[in-house]
């Protein structure tokens, strides 16, 4: 008897397909990630809203200066809605976010969203180029070091690589930037040290941001490669007499990138935030420089909005890495159950 002839079985079948959707690992994974992302966004938005209210004293008075007339301060407070009850301000803030209204700059008297839109591309360019450079350096370096030091070979090479990478990885990127400016900008005069007007102006800030993450990523990749190259399936590939490049890049590398990918997500997030210091070293006209300027001039709406943008960027990158990891290694999302 077919199930379609029996209404009871039909109902059972329908229920099963409904719960069946929830039983699928991808559905459960997507739901978990969505809930986590929404909670994180809410925490981020609430924290950035609270920022202006947790400042000691009156932010408007601080922004306008101690000699500003009380009427002007009051008028500005009213214009910013800071004289309304906290809950009302919070609701207005959330409503503004949904319509792209991030408030008005205290110093420039321009919409904050315009300032962010104007400065964001420069920061994105710097971050993406630095991340791409880090990956381009790290992958061949990590794979080569893994191959050269597999199975206890090349002890001296391993020691030299580990020592160099530890030293380079622990120097903060802005210090590397200062060093690069001193050598290539001031001493040799080969490259411009400020702004982003020409392609050559991108080289020093990108290198300053990429060196540390590249060597850290290469170290992780080397360790993973050494482990993977000891695997039975690599021995099988060698027994098949596959060309070395096929063994390393088709079999070993895809199995070695999981840890590096997780780390690269963290690195990308850290790079985005790291632009704050590097942009100031290289006078880069991006969000990093703007947030420092806005803090110095006590322009809280701008600082608040940029914190929000950086936070959203970090959340977005982390979510993208989670999805990429699940695609690369579907077992990772099942292990979460």
């Amino acid at each position: 008897m077919s199930s379609t002839a029996n209404p009871v079985l039909e109902t059972a079948s329908g229920d099963e397909s409904g719960t069946g959707l929830l039983r699928r690992p991808w559905t459960r994974f997507a739901l978990r990630r969505l809930v986590r992302l929404l909670v994180s966004v809410w925490v981020l938005v609430t924290a950035s809203f609270a920022m202006i209210h947790l400042m000691p004293g009156d932010p408007v008075r601080a922004a306008l200066g101690p000699t500003a007339p009380a009427a002007l301060v009051e008028a500005r407070r009213h214009a910013l809605g800071l004289d309304e009850p906290l809950l009302v301000q919070y609701v207005h803030y959330l409503g503004g976010l949904f319509t792209g209204d991030l408030g008005t700059s205290l110093s420039a008297q321009l919409p904050v969203s315009d300032i962010v839109a104007q400065r964001l591309p420069a920061t994105l360019t710097l971050t993406v180029l630095a991340f791409a450079a880090a990956v381009v350096i790290a992958v061949p370096l990590g794979v080569t070091m893994g191959v050269l030091t597999r199975g206890g070979r090349g002890r001296r090479t391993e020691l030299a690589f580990t020592t160099t990478s530890v030293v380079l990885g622990t120097i903060p990127d802005f210090l590397i930037g200062v060093g690069l400016v001193a050598v290539f900008g001031v001493h040799l005069g080969w490259l411009p040290v400020a702004g982003n007007a020409t392609p050559s102006a991108h080289i020093l800030p990108v290198v300053a941001m990429a060196i540390g993450p590249a060597v850290i990523l290469a170290r992780i990749l080397r360790v993973e490669m050494v482990g993977v190259l000891e695997s039975d399936f690599i021995r099988t590939a060698r027994a098949k007499r596959l060309p070395a490049r096929t063994v390393y890049f088709r079999h070993a590398l895809p199995n070695a990138v999981t840890a590096a990918l997780t780390l690269s997500g963290l690195i990308l997030s850290a790079m985005a935030v790291g632009t704050v210091l590097v942009e100031n070293v290289f006078a880069w006209p991006g969000l990093g420089r703007t947030i420092v300027d806005s803090i110095l001039t006590k322009d809280y709406p701008v600082a608040q909005a940029i914190v929000l943008v950086y936070g959203a960027g970090v959340l977005l990158v982390n979510s993208a890495v989670d999805v990429a990891l699940a695609l690369l290694d579907p077992r990772s999302m099942i292990r979460e159950d």
Binding site: S231, D232, F233, R235, T236, A237, A239, R241
Partner: peptide, 19 residues
């Protein structure tokens, strides 16, 4: 690329590329 001799290894869980 001539491979007239082939090996099958002990551990079936590790001898095939998981990806």
């Amino acid at each position: 690329r001539r491979r007239p001799l082939q090996m099958v290894f002990q551990d079936p869980y590790a001898s095939l590329d998981p990806r």
